[in-house]
Amino acid sequence: MNARLLATFLLGGIAALDATPVAQTLLSQPLVTATILGAVWGNLPLALEVGVVLQILAASTLPVGARTPEDYAVGGVVGAGAALGLASQLPFEVSHNASALLGALAGMVAAVLGVPLLKWQRRRNEGLSRWCESALGQGQESALAAAQAAGVVLSFATGVCLTAVLVGLALRGLQGLATHESLRLARAWGLAQPLWIGLGLAQLLHAFVQRRLTRAALFGVALLAGWLALMVGSQ
């Protein structure tokens, strides 16, 4: 358990790095981090259920303009990590669904709580930027590399700490709820999962279609063709 938790915290730091400061390769997206955590914790089905919900919501959250979007890099790791940690201590199928619900909610809360922390980091980087310019003026060319390294370390450390605190709080605070109220929570998951997926998919569809009739028609044709192929294929 401890090694898995440690891996989860480190993945939180790596995801925080990939999201903005380093490379932006989508390693930080919830589906990717959830799949990695599913392999680490040995429970891929649960990780994918939580990962899909958070991924659809993350994809409909856009880092454009001045708005700081929700931090789904850390949110994805916290969501999948909390669900897997809770489920690892509860053996039944209903507790699997209860863990998925609590994990997905923990992921969304983490994504929202990550926003002020991102803003704080960006303000710290302003100080770093001013220091670097003044050091360059004094002839210290290495200040540029030092400032870049400091930005990377700050981001990684913030990601690890936020993940550790939120996963720790979720496991400590929600364990009792998941154990004693797993039936009710499983019922809530049965309702929340399709609502969340529908909400996120509609946001994406709205962004793709942009009032173009041909794209709306493509959506309809693909839906019908997919549905028919799945129904006929299973006969």
Binding site: L57, W196, L199, L201, Q203, H206
Partner: peptide
């Protein structure tokens, strides 16, 4: 969920995540 998503996509606020938290 699809209908709610289509309706809420017309406005920037609340964000999809805030809607999803409320739904949860």
């Amino acid at each position: 969920g699809l209908v709610l998503g289509m309706l809420t996509a017309q406005r920037a606020r609340p964000s999809p995540t805030e809607w999803a938290l409320g739904i949860g």
